[in-house]
């Protein structure tokens, strides 16, 4: 463990976190901090914006400029922050409920604009903070507090959603592979344009308990057989991919202009029109 990262970036006096033992959020946060550390950018220009949920609580332990906003609204606040000061590296920390249900509209429109934000979703396939209800990423058939006969709503694949909405960097990472998660987040942070990283994670206290998946360690081991890399997935049939989670880098392209850059062109046009 690299203790430097903790003393450097965490608000240590706010410890311990409110997270349950074994919660996946800590692994994601650690990966983010390691990735930020490797970036070699002015740390004072790195800002974190989150919504509401166990995952969004992550910012409350950080020694950076942070905004802990309302449920679902992190991307909206982040958009204003970035447009008001494009020099900032704006990182949105969010949950599956926060960004895909109540904040879903902001998510797709940020992707459509291709604004240079990095959105990191701690996807534990349920609403942890409110006690384990089903979310837009809960697999069909799961037990949650609001699907006691098994969840029946079809879930989103957040990577497909953000890709089709226009995100120019899309990846899925998993807490089971923390080093690879750090790498994917680092690439997302370096990407110019909207980057989205779906972090497959666990909520042992609620989703795990309600679905009798064992303790945090046992839940972690379940990922071993379920995770399939993009490369490997290419050689598997649709049946073989059922119940698997494909991880890796889905999109990494620079064929679309970034929104702050587009807006700078708009300013140039406006000035030309005013003077012309």
């Amino acid at each position: 463990m690299n203790n430097d990262i903790y003393t450097k970036y965490l608000a240590l006096d706010k410890m311990p976190t409110m997270w349950c033992p074994g919660c996946g959020n800590g692994i994601v946060l650690q990966s983010i901090l390691r990735a930020v550390d490797e970036l070699n950018v002015d740390r004072d220009k790195v800002v974190f914006v989150s919504g509401i949920g166990c995952s969004s609580r992550a910012v409350n332990y950080l020694d950076f400029d942070c905004m802990h906003t309302n449920h679902g609204r992190a991307i909206a606040f982040a958009t204003g922050l970035k447009m008001a000061n494009p020099d900032l590296h704006v990182i949105v920390l969010t949950g599956d409920g926060d960004c895909a249900s109540i904040g879903g509209n902001h998510l797709i429109h940020a992707c459509r604009r291709n604004i240079d934000l990095t959105i990191i979703c701690m996807n534990n396939s349920n609403y942890g903070m409110t006690g384990g209800q089903y979310s837009p990423t809960t697999p069909i058939g799961s037990q949650t507090k609001t699907s006691v006969y098994g969840s029946y709503e079809p879930p989103f694949d957040l990577c497909k959603l953000t890709e089709s909405a226009g995100a120019t960097y899309v990846a899925r990472a998993a807490t089971y592979y923390p080093l690879q998660m750090k790498e994917l987040i680092r690439k997302a942070l370096q990407h110019h344009g909207l980057s989205f990283v779906d972090c497959a994670s666990d909520c042992p206290s609620l989703f795990g308990r309600l679905n009798r998946l064992g303790d945090a360690g046992q839940m972690m081991l379940r990922w071993k057989d379920r995770l399939v890399s993009i490369q490997k997935a290419q050689s598997l049939s649709e049946e073989e991919l059922e119940n698997k989670v494909v991880w890796g880098e889905f999109v990494n392209k620079d064929n679309r202009k970034e929104y702050c850059d587009i807006y700078a062109e708009n300013i140039a046009k406006a000035k030309e029109a005013a003077n012309g």
Binding site: V49, M67, T69, N70, G72, R73, I75, A76, F77, A78, T79, G80, L81, K82, M83, A84, N85, L88, N105, H106, H109
Partner: peptide
Amino acid sequence: MEDELSSIGAVIGASCAG
């Protein structure tokens, strides 16, 4: 913006940037 929730959200974000 895409709606009024994001309009005021972006306004608050921009104000925080000064």
